[in-house]
Design a protein around this nucleic acid. Structure first.
Lengths: 138, 138
DNA sequence: GTTCCTGCAAAAGCTTTGCAGAAGA
DNA sequence: TCTTCTGCAAAGCTTTTGCAGGAAC
């Protein structure tokens, strides 16, 4: 995971973006927590070691990282946005019983979809809901 | 379209839900506007003929219809939710150039997805972003 | 008469904006 | 020095809640 962080840091610096202490910590958090944290969750965790950290900085950084396609902003539901470090394209499945969110690989191509012939897809979100296998067994 | 409305009204009444004037108008709006309206859009349109209509009623009704799987709440982005009358399962594609939202048919089955073996999918949202064919040509 | 529905007002929650001070190049 | 970043405070928006009056059964 350390390796991934370093790679991403290099990638970001190449783009001429300054990586302040705050930004680095937020990025690190996202890489180490692939369970779709919210801005609030990131804030609550980082405030412990950075007592002056503000939510504004969290939002600024998340927007910045999203603009540069380092992370993805996903709307699971409600008003609260979740953020995902992009390590591969994947969909999300939320179990309505245990509330857990599962990831799964997706490989969708625009070409087989008749209505999207010739379209260019740059971002894809796939979100399912239902009951996971463990909860079905109970 | 009139036929669809009547069918849905029957379906709802069968479930023992009262269909007040307000609820009927909101439902009618959703059936006649399949372009993913927001609560605000529905409100702005209906307030003209129902000056006392409140946003609370809109939200109450939308929640009610969603609970009974008549409509689907979708999070395209931002804080504002969009609502979709369920006439068939379909995904959404938003063009980042012209901002238009396109619909396309989807037929996803849990079984080919390794990570979701044995899961039960009751709701699915597929949302793509990119550039549509018209904007690519320009 | 009892239950459900409507809608005003207020509150709640997430996100954005303005701005001044601090940090970095 | 000049640009960029941080973070407080306030505002902006969407959505939810409490509650009283009204409608439906």
């Amino acid at each position: 995971m350390k390796k991934t962080l370093n790679l991403v840091v290099q990638e970001i610096k190449k783009k001429g973006i300054q990586l302040s202490h705050q930004r680095l910590k937020i990025l690190e958090y996202l890489i180490n927590h692939l369970n779709h944290p919210t801005a609030q969750e990131i804030y609550c965790s980082l405030i412990k070691e950075m007592p002056t950290l503000s939510k504004t900085t969290i939002y600024n950084t998340l927007d910045l990282l999203e603009e540069h396609q380092i992370i993805k902003k996903i709307s699971i539901e409600n008003q609260e946005a979740h953020y995902d470090f992009i390590y591969q394209d994947h969909g999300h499945f939320k179990c309505n019983v245990c509330q857990k969110i599962f990831d799964f690989k997706i490989s969708v191509d625009a070409q087989p979809i008749q209505e999207l012939q010739g379209f260019s897809i740059t971002k894809q979100s796939v979100y399912f809901q239902g009951t996971c296998i463990s909860c079905l067994k109970v």
